[in-house]
Design a binder for these strands. Structure first.
Lengths: 307, 307
DNA sequence: TCTGTCCATGCGGTCTCCGCATCAATCGGC
DNA sequence: GCCGATTGATGCGGAGACCGCATGGACAGA
């Protein structure tokens, strides 16, 4: 016993109109078609649903129950189709973004806010982690795209430069170097250096910068999170160098920041997508919002600029 | 954009198995059929739902959403069909019984109790009222059938005798007639008579009985409900005559009941149904339960007997 | 390189489903 | 009380959907 949608549609229309002819007009099909469809349905469920003499149509008890049920099913179908449609149009769904903690905390909030006023039915998921984890999220499909640094670009990802994020010297306010207008990497190399963990993309860049000025890259201490580095600097244990975007994550403290030169080091944050993939419409919309921000030259924290 | 159940079924099977071949085996159809059905669905919704290379099938974002929705729709359909089936088998639904208050309060409770242990998913609605209202409920289709007295049987109703309900004299215990073993209608006629309202079926029968003994039928007082008659009798205002079944409705009081003879008067309670109508299965089942009670000779209150 | 497996597709046959025309039954107006 | 109009059911022919079979092309693993 399986009733087709066609049968249920026909039956519901007839039962609601209590008339084959009227229902046929409303549906834009022939009366005979409805007559057959209803007869088929009755045969399939094995019960008479409509009591018809040549002049009137009325529902039996089973018919009333069947109407209720048919409308439930049809409504579920209609709602489902509409929901799918909305999803395909990018009006609902979820966009999952994998990013570094600094991007998630500093750059994205305003983007998400703008996006959600346009598309309130779309949920945004932030998956934050370090570079490797972030890229894996994209490769595995957990995330729709990533905003992250990219050291060795994996083959199956496509990149679009997004912002440049300049390294600055992080000092306690009473540190001698704080008196300077700008600081060189070679100057930093003479101080106890407080580095972030080895699997951070920031670490790779600081190591490289010290390499360029022929300095040893052995840190005085190493911390997993930027907030911890902030605590160490505040305690006077040394100095650090961090991209401008992560500075808000240091927390509060007696910090001063000075431009870092010789060389000037930027980390580039890219949008990373799986190559040769058509994106869900919601993802496209999110990226368009991001692009709008760039095109409008929206304010960024000092030291951060659109790429 | 309307997806057929066939397409949704096919898609859901393939998407769940992430394999056309496996899904085809499970559904017992050919692989080519599924391939086409899914392709049709994709064309209709205008989006690719499955990403297939020759070796693997995996869901796109739209595909995952579509699977969720397809399963919702299919589950609604399955549940609805099952519900209708249960209804047609008489395992669910509602049986509406129109009856006199005395039947509703005294005779039916045990029947309903027995019926509901057999069929816990079936609801029973009791529509109680006086004879005319009760019959109208059946004629209008509000009730599936009635249990009631029937004075002038309307044309479009079919009757099945159910029980006989004997009239007894209702006296206060200190009344002189209470000393007798039985009381005649002519004896009652000499006392102030407390009658029920004119639209009650009981009233019609008491009037007729007094007529048979050539007594005036003018009551000393008339009350709408049996409980009120009870109050009047208890207050010593007079005597009454009521069918045995309604005695529980008198309430508590210093009542004694005596057999009423010359003539012995029974009211007959019938099952009344709309003629030439096939009954909903639940109604049939309820009537069968009632019939079982009769066949088993279940206990009835004194003065009441199966017809 | 070769074979087995997977999905897509051409093909022919069957069955469903449609609309048109018509029929029998009934209602409403005169 | 009669007649035309309207209602739902049904015969019929045609168009299209849907099926399974067989085959093709692409890829994985030996």
């Amino acid at each position: 016993m399986d009733a087709t949608l066609r049968q249920l549609t026909a039956y519901a229309a007839v039962a609601r109109a209590t008339s084959f002819t009227a229902a046929a007009a409303r549906l834009g099909v022939s009366q005979s078609s409805l007559s057959r469809a209803v007869a088929d349905l009755e045969r399939q469920v094995g019960a008479q649903l409509l009591e018809r003499d040549t002049r009137n149509v009325q529902l039996t008890a089973a018919g009333a129950e069947a109407l209720r049920i048919a409308e439930q099913i049809l409504s579920a179908h209609r709602a489902g189709m509409k929901e799918l449609d909305r999803f395909l149009l990018g009006e609902s769904g979820t966009v999952a973004v994998a990013t570094l903690p600094s991007v998630a905390a500093v750059l994205l909030p305003q983007v998400i806010s703008g996006f959600r006023t346009d598309r309130p039915r779309v949920a945004v998921r932030l998956l934050d982690g370090l570079e490797r984890a972030v890229l894996n999220r994209v490769l595995s499909g957990d995330a729709d795209f990533a905003i992250t640094t990219v050291g060795v670009p994996p083959e199956r990802l496509e990149h679009r430069p997004l912002v440049r994020d300049r390294f600055v010297a992080v000092l306690r306010e009473d540190h001698p170097l704080a008196a300077r207008d700008e600081v060189g990497w070679a100057d930093l190399a003479l101080e106890p250096f407080l580095a972030v963990g080895r699997d951070s993309s920031v670490r790779r860049l600081t190591d490289a910068a010290f390499g360029q000025v022929d300095a040893h890259a052995v840190p005085a201490a190493e911390a997993g999170s930027v907030a911890t580095v902030g605590g160490l600097v505040a305690a006077g244990l040394g100095v650090s160098a961090l991209p401008a975007l992560v500075l808000p994550l240091l927390g509060t403290g007696p910090f001063v920041f000075r431009p870092l030169v010789d060389p000037v080091v930027d980390r580039r944050l890219d949008i990373a997508l799986r190559a040769r993939r058509t994106l869900p419409r919601v993802t496209e919309h999110f990226l368009e919002t991001l692009e709008d921000f760039r095109a409008q030259g929206r304010d960024l924290p000092p030291g951060v600029s659109w790429a």
